[in-house]
Design a protein around this nucleic acid. Structure first.
Lengths: 228, 228
DNA sequence: CCTACAGGTTCTGTATTACAGAACTTAGTT
DNA sequence: AACTAAGTTCTGTAATACAGAACCTGTAGG
């Protein structure tokens, strides 16, 4: 029994959460192994998920995520109102820096990578859209925190600089630089981040990335639609 | 008790489904009214939804959809692999026709509007992405059925024509034209559809829309990434 | 300042449900 | 034909989720 909720609901949601970019389809047995639930339990829970449009089961017996997630994900995304403007920016930044570029927003004590454009280079920092990362580590995390928690002591310096560079904070081989995206109403909408191999991301590359992101962030400020 | 599934799971999923483009946030009482559940039941089910990232509750006590839906919706969308290619097409078709343009896929006995670009005109056919519509009515529904149910008698003529025009099939004032999008492997990927006021959508406008959609569909065929 | 109302939260007895897990079915492989 | 693995069905029972009353809190109006 869960502390406040409904155990069977969380079991069903954990079935959904077992899907990922690399696990877009799963058999009954794979779901059972992944979630630790008995197959008969999985069968019963997936029947409800299918009935409500959250899962689909093909004639091959494999389960895939269902269209209701698209609809709800689109509602969530439109609440954010950003993709249309952010994606082209990320592409231009990849062209300029030749490194991977992301856009993050804060969610509680974490940050979420909403949009991502990976570097064309074979050796690159890999990350998936939708992934959650800590707030207290990594360039984008610190930038988001600096602009959303005014009383956080290190935030003053970050706001003064207007950017943050992390060298191996989350992963020893990865370096990243990040700048905030603030709209014309003065509200933080998220953080842009360029990340790549630390050995490549020298002072010159850092400077180039920061200037390019600052320019794009300023452009975005003029174009972002007002949020609610 | 549900026939095959878990009743509490379906209740929780119905809470999620109560959200829409026009109801992006709801109070506890609104969710209770919308779903017909007791407030204490809603409180318990939403606790699980929040714990798993499917809902968020602000300090204003309002519930909003959570980031896990973005992540799962993105997985679903990337499974489809289309948005990147379809959206620019829809914009060009809106420019050409000055009417609303959609892209649909079949899902069981329904079709889903995956992507949508509305007409800039004040009076226009409105629809939301993610919405489900019948398969047996409306231009896109018939096109999808013609290419996915070879034995459906009216399908032969539609395949021969390569398009379908509906005049007031779903809504008396709305007319639509639709063409299939078939990739280079010969697989149907969905249907493009232009829709607008019937009084405006005369023979000339229909012809223009169909030719423009056919051209775009042919271009898409060369660019669509292979699906699984 | 007091009262009323509406929304949100807590609590609990009990009927109902979801589960574990065995047994069975089906399909594929050797 | 035998074996294995995945999927499906079944059921006794422990555990759960629920209804709905009671309570709490904040706001508005008199």
């Amino acid at each position: 029994m869960t502390r406040d909720g409904a155990e069977s609901v969380e079991r069903a949601l954990n079935i959904l959460r077992a899907f990922s970019e690399t696990r877009r389809e799963m058999s009954l047995t794979e779901i059972s192994q992944s979630t630790g639930l008995y197959k008969s339990t999985v069968l019963r829970l997936t029947a409800s998920l299918e009935a409500c449009g959250f899962l689909q089961r093909g004639e091959d017996k494999l389960y895939r995520l269902g269209p209701e997630l698209w609809r709800l994900g689109a509602i969530y995304r439109r609440g954010l109102d950003l993709g249309e403007f952010i994606r082209p920016v990320l592409r231009r930044l990849v062209d300029t820096t030749q490194e991977s570029v992301s856009f993050y927003v804060r969610d509680g004590d974490e940050r979420i990578c909403l949009y991502r454009q990976n570097s064309p280079r074979a050796v690159r920092h890999h990350l998936e859209e939708g992934e959650r990362l800590p707030l207290d580590r990594g360039a984008a995390g610190r930038v988001l925190r600096a602009y959303t928690a005014p009383k956080w002591p290190p935030g003053a310096q970050i706001r003064e600089d207007g950017f943050y560079i992390s060298l191996g904070e989350r992963d020893a081989d990865v370096a990243a630089a990040s700048v905030p995206v603030i709209d014309n109403a003065g509200r933080l909408r998220g953080a842009l981040s360029v990340s790549g191999l630390r050995s490549r991301f020298d002072t010159k590359a850092q400077h180039l990335a920061i200037e390019a992101m600052k320019m794009e962030a300023a452009r975005l400020a003029d174009h972002l639609p007002a949020s609610d």
